[in-house]
Simulated scan of single mutants.
Amino acid sequence: MVRDMDALPLPPASAEPAACAQWVSALIQHRQTILPKRLGEPGPDDRQLELILQAAAAAPDHGELLPWRFVLIPAAARARLAEVFAAALLERDPAAAQEQVARAREKAFRAPVLMLAIVRMGAPGDDVPPPERVLSAGCAIQNMLLMATALGFGSALTSGKALHAAGLRALFGLADEEQAVCFLSVGTAVRRKPGRQRPDPAQFVSTLP
């Protein structure tokens, strides 16, 4: 098993803020996307999964609307998701080769933990507009990714055109105002690439003159 956070012992409860900040910075910098096909067993146990989900609850939530939810996809339900992926591909491309359809199905069986993130966009004119709701969901997801990293697991976000397929909406029981935004995968990193170079803040920060 790859546990890349093992080398980063937790600071003691009495640690100075600077020591805590250093550990948090290391945690954030250690997080990287590990593609689902590179995530194997073991996945989080029940307690670890609970910690990951609890981390989502700390996300900013204007109006305390809880405008997002997550649906876990257990092993017993993966075959149904696989058929949705295959149907979505054939709907877009009826001439898709059997190999392409097989690859679409196979995506449903990757990673020990797989869940779908869903955002309730709200009605036109609501006090909390869709961008804020999506931003809240993004914060919840990032909290989950960081907790997964702290626990020693790899993780990834994946999307794709199947998120907008009628079959997927039906499978997950999405309401009219809900939108699936991404899948979240968690497991043990079987293989990983070197971490990418992070952009310097000067590349994305400016000062209002």
Rank of each mutant, 00 (worst) to 15 (best):
F172D: 13
S136A: 14
S159M: 08
Q179H: 08
T188R: 06
D176M: 00
N143R: 04
L135T: 13
G173R: 07
E178Q: 07
T158P: 09
G160C: 11
S155K: 00
L184V: 13
Q197D: 12
A162D: 07
A189H: 11
A148L: 04
A175K: 10
E177N: 14
L145P: 07
V181E: 07
Q179C: 11
S159V: 03
Q142K: 00
L145Y: 10
A180T: 04
L168F: 15
P194L: 11
L146S: 06
A148K: 08
Q142F: 09
M144A: 05
P199T: 11
L135H: 11
S155F: 02
K161Y: 14
T149Q: 01
S136Q: 00
H164Q: 12
T149M: 03
A189V: 09
Q179I: 02
S155A: 13
A162L: 09
F183T: 02
C139V: 09
G138Q: 00
R191P: 10
S136L: 01
S159F: 06
K161A: 15
L171H: 04
L163I: 11
A148G: 14
A156L: 05
G160T: 07
G187V: 04
G154L: 06
L145F: 12
R198Q: 14
S155H: 03
R198I: 09
L168R: 03
A170Q: 15
T149D: 01
L145M: 15
R198D: 12
S185A: 14
A175C: 05
A148Y: 05
A170M: 06
K193M: 11
S185E: 06
P199Y: 14
I141A: 14
A137P: 06
M147F: 09
A175D: 11
L157P: 06
Q179D: 03
V181M: 12
A148S: 15
A170E: 15
A162Y: 09
R192Q: 14
L184H: 02
Q179T: 12
K193D: 14
L146D: 03
R192C: 08
G167E: 02
K193I: 04
E177K: 07
M144W: 01
A180S: 06
L168Q: 08
T158D: 05
L145T: 07
S155Q: 04
M144F: 00
L171M: 14
L163A: 09
G154K: 05
A140R: 05
L163M: 15
D176R: 07
F183Y: 08
L163W: 08
S185T: 08
F183A: 01
K193Q: 12
V186E: 03
R191Q: 15
L163C: 12
T149R: 05
V190T: 12
Q142E: 15
C139W: 04
A137H: 01
L184A: 00
C182N: 10
G187T: 07
G173Q: 06
G160F: 04
A170D: 15
A150P: 13
H164N: 12
S159T: 14
R192M: 12
V181C: 04
G152Q: 00
